[in-house]
Amino acid sequence: MDNEMNYRKSLNKSTNKKVIRIGSQNYVVNAERFKEFKKNVIAITVSVALAIATFGYVKDNIKFHHEKVDISLEVYDQMVDKGYKPVPADGEWDYRYELLDGIDPFDLSIYMGSEDALSILQYRGYESWDDYAQQEGYKNQRDWYNAQKKKVINPETKSKGGK
């Protein structure tokens, strides 16, 4: 959460439309301060590099979170259109899995959770998530999931493996 807050603070300060006019009053003329900075320049540079890398990660996760919401809403609509009950009752999903034909397993896993979506995958003939991932050309479920996540975050990305 701190990382997200830091990202948002930096974003706000950077996109604030107020023009900052730089005059002599803005310059910090302090030999001690400058010496201190010079002494710590490597540590500061590394911290800045880490902050930038973290911001990239945070930004991707924010985007992925929003995309997951969109995917869930789309899956809900698709389920309704196909006559499938989109909400579990008494802890059980509608067992008419055949109605879900055509809905992408990744999207199902986002909406239902991977554990519940596994039942649909098994109905489709796969033994496990790893089995599905391997048949799709990935090493295992994690490899497949990361590739799908990357595609969602950056749709132009061509994933390694996969059919």
Binding site: S14, T15, R21
Partner: peptide, 27 residues
Amino acid sequence: PEDIVVRIEKFENNELCLMGLENSDEF
């Protein structure tokens, strides 16, 4: 150093100005 800021440097009437970026995509 986690508090970082990016601004656009511009000169207006020989005055140094730091302008805000357009949006998060640019940032």
